[in-house]
Simulated scan of single mutants.
Amino acid sequence: MDATAAHAFATPPVSVHRPTTAVEDVITLAAGVWLLTGTYVDGWAHNNLRDLETFFTPWHAILYSGFAACALWIVALTWRRHAPDARWMEAIPAGYGAATAGVLLFLVSGAADFAWHSVFGIEQGIKALFSPSHLGLATGGFLILSAPFSAAWHSPERSWPRLMPAVVSAMLSGMVAAFILQEFAVFARHGLIQTYSGSAGAQPAVTIPTSSSIIVSLASFFVSTAVLFVPVLLLSLRWRLHAAVPAAMTLLPSVALQIMVALRDAWLVPAALVGAVLVGVVWAVARPKPDRPARLLTAIGLSPVVFWAPYFAGVALHDSALSFSSELWGGTLAWTGLEMLALAALTFKVRTTAGTTSKLPAGEGRGG
């Protein structure tokens, strides 16, 4: 890449889109929480209720009313910024372009969801996660909830209190991804790393896992690691995070997933809490900063290792045995750490090559 191209990446053109205020971003998030609550309540229904026969349900009412609140608010933000003789596209708030597209996608997918249910009925279990209309709804919701994060990304000099909507936005967006990928969610169940044997009616015994179950388990840890820690990584590339931020961003989605499956393995919640605390300790000790790659690589590489370790310990204590040998559980922890190390190293390489690396002004955009 030549110097001219690098400079173009480093200094983007001045946007005609007006930024949002902190209050406006908070309202966006409030409507987004409404939408996300409906999403998880609907997930609870699909996971725990049988014989769902109609599209018109209380959980769909929460979901679609939350979407209506998001859509109306984004329309209001755009309306307030529209100037006479100006294009409507220019009135969309800075960072809210993808959210506007998400509103349209959600609207189309909602109509498709009604048609899909009318023809094929109401899905249950894993089938609901493969429905094309549900995938469209999840993508639309992801784009809507990521708006405050996207808006803040282009304004890294914001003070720390002003960045809180961006932090919450990144976490909520990750929770949308966790929802649609819930079959890979580690903290949603404990049988992922356990194999049982025994006749009907007898107490099942923990036994050696098969090769296929090991592969499925490793894949689930890979997906769950990306869902939980990529939002943390993206925030860390721009701002120095307080240790409580990555801890909360790993704990809350894990607890939400357990609630969605009716707390069938409620004892995993304390394990998630311990893991989240350890993640916070790693960040407090490493003190990663956007302009200190070594510290950030250390923190993001160790975080999944210390977060998943209490999961293995909790399962072993609960069942008094563990199907995974030390090579398997130790290797799984190492793989997840290497996964985040690779992703972080790749982002640093791309950022350096594009010439976008810049130091934050002293005291700006930093916490704790």
Rank of each mutant, 00 (worst) to 15 (best):
D2W: 01
D2H: 03
A5G: 01
A8D: 03
A8P: 01
T11S: 07
T11C: 02
S15H: 05
T28P: 10
L29R: 01
L29F: 04
A30L: 12
G32H: 04
L35K: 05
L35R: 04
T39C: 08
D42G: 13
W44S: 07
W44L: 05
H46L: 09
N47C: 01
N48A: 02
R50H: 06
R50W: 03
F55W: 14
T57C: 14
T57V: 13
P58T: 07
A61G: 14
A68Q: 11
A68L: 14
C70L: 13
L72Q: 11
V75H: 11
A76H: 11
A76D: 11
T78D: 10
T78P: 11
R80L: 03
R81P: 04
P84R: 13
A86I: 02
M89P: 03
E90V: 02
Y96I: 15
Y96F: 15
A98M: 15
V108D: 06
V108Q: 06
S109L: 06
F114P: 03
S118L: 02
F120G: 00
F130C: 04
S131K: 09
S131D: 13
S133G: 06
H134N: 13
G136R: 06
T139R: 07
L143N: 08
L145Y: 10
A147K: 08
F149I: 08
A151Q: 11
A151V: 11
H154C: 09
P161Y: 04
V167N: 09
V167Q: 12
A170L: 07
M171D: 08
G174T: 01
V176A: 05
L181M: 11
Q182W: 00
V186R: 04
R189M: 09
R189Y: 09
S197E: 12
S199M: 06
Q203S: 14
Q203N: 15
T207I: 14
T207L: 15
S213I: 06
I215P: 01
A219R: 00
A219V: 01
S220E: 02
T225F: 04
L228S: 02
L228A: 13
F229K: 01
P231Q: 06
P231F: 02
P231C: 05
L233D: 10
L233I: 08
L234T: 09
W239H: 15
R240Q: 15
A243G: 05
A244Q: 03
V245A: 07
P246Q: 03
A247C: 02
A248F: 04
T250Q: 02
P253T: 02
V255N: 08
V255T: 08
A256G: 03
V261M: 08
V261I: 12
V261S: 10
A262G: 02
A272P: 05
G275H: 12
V279I: 12
V282C: 11
W283K: 07
W283D: 09
A284Y: 10
V285T: 12
P288E: 08
K289I: 07
R292L: 05
P293L: 03
A294P: 00
L296Q: 06
L296V: 01
G301I: 00
L302E: 03
F312N: 15
A313F: 13
G314L: 13
V315I: 15
A316I: 08
L317Q: 14
A321L: 12
S323C: 12
S325E: 15
L328I: 05
L328D: 01
T332S: 05
A334W: 03
T336Q: 07
G337H: 07
L343K: 00
L343V: 04
A344V: 01
F348M: 06
F348Q: 06
A354C: 08
G355M: 10
K359G: 07
A362F: 03
E364Q: 09
